[in-house]
Structures are given as structure tokens and as C-alpha cells.
Design a protein around this nucleic acid. Structure first.
Length: 780
DNA sequence: AGCACGCCGACT
DNA sequence: GTCGGCGTGCTC
């Protein structure tokens, strides 16, 4: 009987799986969770994921699975369940979840290869000049890519040439999938086989080496290391023996030792260094007791509300230790930006090689290694939001640190998921405990805690009884990105693809669009009025840095923002310099406020604080409170009471006052009332829908019709359509529709169904087929 | 997401 | 009269 496999493809396809026949003999190799190579459409090859193997013959023509790419499943059944939940809850396709979930190198790439047809011979007399060049290149290399052909001809369009060669029978095309993952190999040292098998040989060797000090040192170092670890790297041995490579070579020549290649993990090179931890504070002891009690009871999520400096991390460490002692795995989630070397190092000092790290700045090879490590039961994984997709074998605890952080929500490509909320689902479905930690709870989580949905554990005191700083300075930076402006007519440089101003970057002397990446040179004369009075307006961090240098020429000042942070090494070096007092002042954007622990910050200044409260967004107040409180927490950690200076134009704003008084309760109560009165979360659920098209008239029409369809069923729950804050991005015009839904599972599922049918109805109409509809559930 | 099919404008 | 534009539909 023929077997079939339902395959998930990493594409945005409406259908969840596609069915392929399994060739004779391959049935026994295939199972759920393995990757296979399949052809989809005319020529494209993809690595798809087996969801199910069965014998139900479909009533349409099927293609066959080409090859099996894994021996063991790379995705577990519970992961697939999570993918389904995400696709359903966040209104996207399974393929989109798959693309987000699998690390790049498990996804494989399809490259078109050009292969020479040996049967054609070597008579090139009837080939054109370009054709000749490609054919000649092929004779030398046998197989090249389309890109190689481009280089050979130094032309952009090579497809016609290749097409002609194809019809003349000079070459043919081959689609090939390549496994790009290559394990890292290093040189290691071991005893030569004869010495391994016969210990007496080694004894006999000793007197011989008595006068050859260097060689003896190497051998002794080798034997010492061999007792401590399973394998010995060449570098390690040379370091331990403190000798040069040539002495080692002599021993190798003598046939005592041999050098071989070894696959090693690219993950942490840290030694296990289980540091003796400090004594727990009373507050920490109490928090731990509360948490353990909640975990052993109903196992509801826990909201750990601990002020900055209260020692939450220490509580996490205790819980992690307990969990891994019982053989469970721990997922420790942090916002991407907070995954700095500091927290990583701290956990690595405690847990050594039991910790793996997974985030976007970790290279793709390492990510594949962490993936496999999770599958093999790695005890602790410290990760950004995508860590949710790792294939845990026995997940028992999830910690979501800085749970309030908006970057837990993925914005642009689907799946538009919130990692905090998804983590709660994952914990629930896999029977793990979950702990949400923060100094400034999100309004949603706070509400859930007050309603008894989450268990609330509080740590209100700073470690060592230190008081909060006595003052605060503050002014906000957002909206002050430097831009080019004409002093005569007010013209400013705009992006040609998006309706936003271009931002000036001093170090490159160029203007850049933060939405689409478009770059251009700054104008010298005004394109509108031809005046030469073009100036820079606004102050970003560069401007502040320059001003500071004028007032304090001797201060060592550095800047930290998206531009300067760049690579992970840059960021680490900068933070290190600051921590070790090689810098006096660090000027930064919001980046500096997230999860950086410095114990020597005397003053924190915030510029333009009340701007934060003025964003046209129902979360503006919450964001402002969180940001300012977090910033305040940066000052005077451990030893001294630091100062925080907040600059604002309107100092009477309630949020500013609540921050100054450190009054979270008052802030939360006021905010909750507003949310309730204006039908916002946590009392109502939002779904944001954006329609996009390159013709403004078409989106406008489409959105009007779409809104009407929705309103027929949902009535006043539908707001809009309205013009978005940025009407055009990447050449696409948008229209926004917002749904405010009562919190009911029936209404939610009914509405999603309604959205699906309305989208089908819309794109089925002539002229609207190219309209994109982006659905964002629980937008931030 | 690709890719082919198919129907309307500026070129040999 | 053809090349090529992109709007539309399909891919197991």
C-alpha cells in the first residue's frame, strides 16, 4: 500500500499542509517532525516538515517526497501543537510559523545551478559571444550558479543567454538543496593507538624523556588533563604545558601522541564554575516560598513584581537550580535588547555549560546547535522570544523576565505573536511552571494578578534596604531624530518610498529612512526654493554627545544606540568600558534603560519626558511610566544612592507625578479606569487590520468595503478605516481598521472566521486581488 | 512565495 | 504584427 505524508511548507499558503507520496522503501524512514525535500510548483524545491504519515489516497495527482533530510525529528509533537495554536490565535499560516520557528540553516535554500551538458561536445562555433563565455566557464567548472554567470558576463540580465544555451542543448538546469550547517572542527590531541592499548609502553617511555624536558611537560600535562575531561584540545594542551607547538610535533613524530579533528560546540566556552551564592535576603526567602507554594497548587502563572535592585535574578537562579536538579529544562526569556553579556555571564557563572544562549545576534550555526541541544535536554536556555520555538524534551519552567517589554510582540513579518502570552500557553500545554518577572508590570498582567488569574508575588524593597534615588531628570528623545530642513521654506528631506522624514546620520554623512532603509546624500541647496540655508534640526544622541563635549571637553563620552550597537562585540566592548570606569558618560536611546546592571551610575538624565505621554496610542501612559521607572532604577544600584534627573515641559502630568512618587498602585488604578472607560485591553481585546496597496485609491475603496462588511456583523466594535500614522511605507499605501471586542472566546473565534471570509470576499472582487490584508491580534 | 497563463500598450 | 507589461490563479 502506498503511504502518504502531509507536509508543512515554509510559505504563506492558506492550506496548512500538502500531501506527497512516499516512495517505496522510504516509509520506514519517515515520521512526524522530520524534514523532507519536496518539489512545490513547477521547479522550486523546499525543505518541508512532515506533519503526518498516512495511507489515505488523495483524489488528485501527488508528487513524491524526493529525500529525507533528518534521521531524528527536529520538531517535537508538542512544538507542532504550539505552531497550530499560534497560527490560529494570531491569524497566520502554519508555513509562516514554521519560517519563524526553524533556525535558518534548518530551512535550507533552493539555488538554481547550471550544469554543462557533456553530450554537446566542444564545438562552440554557432554560439554568440555571451553564450560562448558562459559555455567556456561551464567547461572549466562543470557547475555554476546563475550568479556566477552574471559575474562572468558582467551583466545584470543573463536569463536570456542561459535560455538560449538551454534551447541549443549546451546546458541544463538543476535545482539543488544544500545542507549549509557545518559543525565547527578543531584540533584535538590523543594518545596514539598503540599507547592507548598498552599502558606499559608509556612507562617505558618515561626514562627516555627524562632529559627532554619540554616533551615530558607536554606528556604530563596531557595525562593530567585526560583525567579531568573527555577530550583535550591542542590549544588547551599547549597552554597547560606552556610550551611551543614544535615540541608537540616531536611527540607526534615519535608516535606517542596524535592530532585529530574534533567537532565541538560553538556554544559557551565557559568552564563550569558553580560559584558559592550569597545568602538569600528575607524578602527573597519569602518570595521563593510563595512561588513554590503557587507552583505546587493550581500552577497558575506567577507575576513577580520586584522593584529594580530587589534581587529577582537571584530568585530565578534558585528556581532554575531546583528545576534542573529534578531533570527539567528551563526556558529563560528576555527581550532581545536585554540579552547583554551581563545577564548571560551571570547565568553562565552559576550554571556553566548547562546554559545555552539563543537570540538573533547568535550566528545561525550556533542556533542550529542550540536547537539540537534543546532536543537533547540542555538544562537551561537563555533566549529572546524565538526561544519559544525550541524543541524542548522536558520543559518544566519558563521565566519571562521584563514581562512588560513591548518587544515581546513581533511586529512585522507574521506570525505577529506575543512571546509572553505564547509562553503562558506553552507552559499550560506542556505542564511547565511559568513566572513573569518585572519591576513595572504591564497593565494586562497586573489586571490578571488582581483578578486572581495570576498569583502575585511582590518584592518591594531594594536589596540591602537601599532607598530609591532622591531625584529624577528627564526629557524624551523620540521624535527628535535629526533631520534636514530648509530655514527659508521649511522643506525637509522625505523618503521617496515612505511618508516619513529621513534621519541624518553623522558618521556616514547620509540620510536614511528608518522604515525601508532608503539612503541618500544630504542636499546642499533646497530642492524646493533653491536657498542654501539647509540646516539640521532636532537632537538625537549624536547631537547630545556633541553638546556634552563642548561643556565637558575632558569627559570620556560614548554613545549607545542602534547605530553604534551594531554587532554583539561592539555592544559588549562599550558596556564593558562603561562598567569598568573607562567612560564617564554614556549617552543613549531607550537601549540603555533595558536590563543593563551598572553599579556605578551616579546620575541618570532623561530628556523630554512628557513627550512620551503624548503618543497617539492607548499605551503611551503605560510606556512612559515603565520607561521612566526603569531609567530611575539604573541609578545608584548596589552601594550609593544615585540621582535621576527628569526634564519635562509639563511636570504636572499625572504619569510624571506617579513616577516621582514611585506610586505604581495609583498609576495602575488610574490607567485601568481609563482602559475600562474607553474599551481598551485588558477589558477588551483589540484586533488591528491594515489593508495595503500601491494605489491609494484602491486601498481606500477596499478598506471602505471591508469595513462595511465587518460592520454589518460587528456594528460599533469596528473603528475606521482611517489613514495610518504613516500613510505610505515601502511604496505601499495603507488603511487601518481597529476592532474592539468583548473578551469572549465565542466572539473571538467568530470574528476571526468573519475576517477570513471577508478577506476572501474582498480579494475575490476585480481590482482588489492585489490588496494585502495584515491582521494583528493583540497589537502593542 | 514563485511561476505560468493571459490579455492590453510601444516597438521592429 | 510581436515583445513585454503585470493582474490572476495555482501549487500536493
Amino acid at each position: 500500500m502506498t503511504h502518504y505524508a502531509d507536509i508543512i511548507l515554509p510559505l504563506a499558503l492558506a492550506k496548512r499542509t500538502y500531501t506527497y507520496a512516499i516512495p517505496e522503501g522510504m516509509e520506514s524512514l519517515l515520521q512526524t517532525g522530520l524534514r523532507v525535500e519536496v518539489q512545490f510548483g513547477k521547479s522550486k524545491l523546499y525543505s518541508g516538515l512532515v506533519e503526518r504519515v498516512h495511507t489515505e489516497k488523495p483524489d488528485y495527482q501527488v508528487k513524491s517526497v524526493i529525500a529525507v533530510l533528518d534521521e531524528v525529528a527536529v520538531v517535537t509533537a508538542s512544538q507542532l501543537k504550539l505552531w497550530d495554536w499560534i497560527a490560529d490565535y494570531y491569524c497566520c499560516t502554519l508555513g509562516e510559523v514554521m519560517s519563524a520557528a526553524l533556525p535558518g540553516h534548518l530551512r535550507l535554500s533552493s539555488e538554481t545551478k547550471i550544469v554543462y551538458n557533456d553530450a554537446y561536445g566542444e564545438d562552440f562555433s554557432d554560439l554568440g559571444a555571451d553564450e560562448y563565455l558562459v559555455a567556456e566557464g561551464l567547461l572549466i567548472q562543470k557547475e555554476i550558479t546563475v550568479d556566477d554567470a552574471r559575474k562572468i558576463l558582467n551583466k545584470k540580465t543573463v536569463f536570456p543567454v542561459i535560455q538560449r544555451l538551454l534551447t541549443k542543448g549546451v546546458l541544463f538546469l538543476r535545482e539543488s538543496l544544500q545542507e549549509k550547517f557545518k559543525p565547527k572542527r578543531v584540533s584535538a590531541v590523543r594518545l596514539a593507538p598503540s599507547y592507548q592499548n598498552d599502558a606499559s609502553l608509556l612507562k617505558d617511555l618515561m626514562p627516555e624523556l627524562a632529559k627532554k624536558e619540554r616533551q615530558l611537560e607536554i606528556l604530563m600535562a596531557y595525562l593530567t588533563l585526560a583525567k579531568q575531561q573527555p577530550f583535550i584540545l591542542k590549544q588547551e594542551l599547549l597552554f597547560k604545558a606552556d610550551v611551543s607547538e614544535s615540541s608537540l610535533k616531536t611527540l607526534v613524530k615519535k608516535g606517542v601522541l596524535e592530532i585529530y579533528d574534533r567537532e565541538v560546540s560553538r556554544m559557551s566556552g565557559y568552564e563550569d564554575e558553580h560559584l558559592q551564592a550569597d545568602v538569600l535576603s528575607d524578602q527573597q526567602v519569602k518570595a521563593l516560598a510563595d512561588i513554590r507554594q503557587a507552583f505546587s497548587g493550581e500552577n497558575e502563572p506567577i507575576l513577580l513584581h520586584g522593584v529594580t535592585g530587589s534581587g529577582k535574578t537571584r530568585v530565578y537562579i534558585e528556581l532554575i537550580q531546583e528545576t534542573i536538579k529534578n531533570g527539567g529544562q528551563v526556558l529563560y526569556l528576555l527581550p532581545e535588547i536585554a540579552l547583554t553579556t551581563q545577564i548571560i555571564q551571570r547565568l553562565q557563572r552559576v550554571f556553566g555549560s548547562e546554559v545555552a544562549v539563543y537570540h538573533s545576534r547568535v550566528n545561525t550555526q550556533e542556533r542550529v546547535e542550540v536547537w539540537r541541544a534543546a532536543l537533547e535536554g540542555k538544562p537551561v536556555i537563555l533566549a529572546a522570544r524565538s526561544g519559544l520555538f525550541l524543541p524542548f524534551r522536558n520543559l518544566k519552567l519558563i521565566i519571562v523576565d521584563e514581562e512588560h517589554d513591548p518587544s515581546y510582540k513581533q511586529y512585522d513579518p507574521a506570525p505577529r505573536y506575543n512571546a509572553r502570552d505564547t509562553a503562558i500557553y506553552l507552559a499550560h500545554s506542556s505542564g511547565a511552571h511559568i513566572l513573569l518577572g518585572t519591576a513595572t508590570p504591564s497593565i494586562e498582567s497586573w489586571y490578571n494578578a488582581t483578578q486572581g488569574k495570576y498569583k502575585l508575588v511582590e518584592m518591594p524593597q531594594r536589596f540591602g534596604g537601599l532607598e530609591l534615588p532622591e531625584a529624577i531628570l528627564f526629557q524624551n528623545r523620540r521624535g527628535y531624530a535629526p533631520m534636514l530642513e530648509c530655514q527659508v521654506c521649511g522643506w525637509n528631506a522625505m523618503c521617496r518610498h515612505c511618508d516619513v522624514s529621513l534621519t541624518y546620520h553623522k558618521h556616514t554623512n547620509r540620510l536614511r529612512c528608518h522604515y525601508c532603509g532608503y539612503v541618500q546624500d544630504p542636499a546642499v541647496t533646497c530642492p524646493a526654493c533653491s536657498s542654501g540655508k539647509i540646516t539640521l534640526r532636532g537632537f538625537g544622541t549624536e547631537k547630545i554627545e556633541d553638546e556634552l563635549k563642548i561643556f565637558m571637553p575632558n569627559a570620556r563620552i560614548r554613545r549607545l544606540d542602534m547605530d553604534t550597537a551594531g554587532s554583539k562585540n561592539n555592544l559588549a566592548a562599550l558596556l564593558n568600558d562603561f562598567e569598568e570606569h573607562r567612560l564617564d558618560i554614556l549617552v543613549g536611546t531607550q537601549m540603555v534603560t533595558k536590563g543593563l546592571d551598572f553599579d556605578n551610575v551616579g546620575i541618570v538624565g532623561v530628556l523630554g519626558a512628557d513627550q512620551l505621554t503624548k503618543f497617539p496610542d492607548f499605551r503611551a501612559g503605560e510606556r512612559a511610566f515603565q520607561l521612566l521607572t526603569q531609567v530611575a532604577g539604573r541609578a545608584g544600584r548596589k552601594y550609593k544612592r544615585g540621582k535621576v534627573l527628569i526634564q519635562a515641559y509639563d511636570t504636572t502630568h499625572p504619569v510624571i507625578q506617579e513616577v516621582l512618587n514611585n506610586d505604581f498602585l495609583k498609576f495602575a488604578a488610574r490607567e485601568l479606569k481609563e482602559r475600562h472607560d474607553f474599551h481598551y485591553p485588558p477589558y477588551y481585546r483589540l484586533i488591528a487590520i491594515q489593508l495595503r496597496h500601491k494605489e491609494p485609491k484602491i486601498v481606500y475603496e477596499a478598506a471602505a468595503q471591508f469595513g462595511k462588511t465587518l460592520r454589518a456583523k460587528l456594528g460599533a466594535r469596528v473603528l475606521g478605516p482611517v489613514l495610518p500614522n504613516i500613510p505610505r511605507i515601502r511604496g505601499q499605501f495603507g488603511q487601518d481598521i481597529l476592532l474592539k471586542l468583548e473578551k469572549s472566546p465565542t466572539i473571538l473565534s467568530g470574528t476571526k472566521q468573519l475576517i477570513r471570509t471577508s478577506v476572501e470576499l474582498l480579494v475575490g472582487k476585480p481590482g482588489f486581488s492585489q490588496v494585502q490584508v495584515v491582521v494583528d491580534v493583540d497589537p502593542m
